[in-house]
Amino acid sequence: QEPLTVSMLAAAPLHKQKQMIGERLYPLIYNVHTQLAGKITGMLLEIDNSELLYMLESPESLNAKVEEALAVLIQAHQTMEEEQMKV
């Protein structure tokens, strides 16, 4: 599969650009975090497209971002659990 380029994205309407990047990100994340791939991909897609394109080409920065997203998800889940315990 040829790498996703800026010109390919620029040719697409804005709302389609996130879907296009997501289709590339998802399989990479699925390999590492199968159950959370959809959630993590959704979180990363809020990052601006230029940084996302860079991450698609550099696995270590993608992995770092994925681990950050995972940590945020776990933190949010723990906070929610604590809130529920307080009630």
Binding site: L25, P27, Y30, K39, G42, L73, H77
Partner: peptide
């Protein structure tokens, strides 16, 4: 440092991704 990632982001639904067999 605080992460800028949003845990409530909308989940992404892949269209073209086929689950590996």
């Amino acid at each position: 440092r605080k992460s800028t990632l949003n845990p409530n982001a909308k989940e992404f639904n892949p269209r073209s991704f086929s689950q590996p067999k």
